[in-house]
């Protein structure tokens, strides 16, 4: 099943937005968000990360370096065609967005990380989550897949029921988190945390207070460590991890559109003054 997609205007787009999905997810989880941004006049590119979608079996062998080089390649391809490129993503996708901000501090027009997952410390994780570092560092990481379970990162009960049905068919993502995936995500997170100060592009962070997978600590660390002068952190109070499908999705979409438009307008104004 082909999951990655592109939404491109025939002419006169405002710029490109590169979207990355989350760990064990797929570009499907970005569809609503992508359609909204497309309507706002942006060209959207939502690739499927290595170890996901059609190649889900590779999640056991994929390395975080594969994700990094994949994101970099997609960005470089886009930068040949577009001058203004924004990067956004959710969960692992947010971390990859930040990695591009580190790698190309001057080239990126703006970054919108949502539910950034630098730590796995959300309230949904079981009490034995404290054993995870020990399990991840040893052979045990190959023995275990953490089951995707209630509330599936979604506070809205109707949406949750729909996602539950789709996940049962494994149509939109995996219904469990392989520990090897977590292992690579946490290794990536370590690398990103060390280099956050390289980020200079404007950043708009979203994180839910009640995120079930990762607490607001991740967003706070990003917000405090990046060098961007233009940065904002928005905490949501009526959503869980999957903010693009939860109760505050419209607020999130509008805020992101405002952010993107303001940075395009800013550039136009600068050009007029010049």
């Amino acid at each position: 099943m082909e999951l990655e997609f592109e939404l491109v205007h025939e002419c006169n787009s405002k710029g490109a937005v590169l979207l990355f999905h989350g760990l064990t997810g797929s570009p499907f989880e970005l569809k609503k968000y992508a359609r909204f941004l497309f309507k706002q006049g942006y060209d959207i590119f939502a690739p499927c990360l290595p170890g996901h979608g059609d190649r889900a079996f590779e999640i056991y062998t994929v390395k975080y370096q594969d994700w990094l080089s994949f994101a970099k390649e997609k960005f470089l391809n886009l930068s040949e065609k577009y001058e203004d490129i924004f990067v956004s993503g959710i969960c692992l996708g947010a971390v990859l967005g930040l990695s591009l901000g580190i790698e190309f501090p001057k080239k990126i027009k703006g970054i919108v990380p949502c539910s950034t997952t630098l730590y796995l410390d959300g309230w949904r994780l079981p009490w034995y989550n404290c054993l995870m570092p020990l399990g991840l560092a040893t052979i045990i990481r190959f023995y275990y897949n953490y089951p995707e379970c209630e509330p599936y990162g979604i506070k809205n009960e109707k949406t949750r029921a729909v996602v539950k049905k789709l996940l049962a068919k494994s149509e939109v993502g995996m219904n469990e988190f392989p520990m090897t995936g977590f292992y690579e995500l946490l290794k990536l997170s370590k690398v990103i945390r060390k280099n956050l100060s390289n980020i200079e592009a404007p950043v708009l962070l979203f994180h839910s207070k009640e995120d079930d997978l990762t607490s607001t600590k991740s967003a706070e660390i990003v917000y405090n460590k990046i060098s961007s002068k233009d940065k904002e952190k928005i905490i949501l109070y009526d959503s869980y991890h999957m903010i693009f499908y939860d109760n505050e999705k419209e607020f999130v979409f509008n805020k992101i559109a405002e952010f993107l438009n303001s940075h395009i307008e800013l550039k136009n104004k600068e050009l007029i003054y010049a």
Binding site: L131, L134, Y146, P147, E176
Partner: peptide, 17 residues
């Protein structure tokens, strides 16, 4: 039963620890 497996793996990690 993935939850049962989860608890089992947690015990295994404790033994190893």
């Amino acid at each position: 039963d993935i939850m049962k497996a989860s608890h089992f793996i947690a015990s295994m990690t404790i033994f190893m620890g």
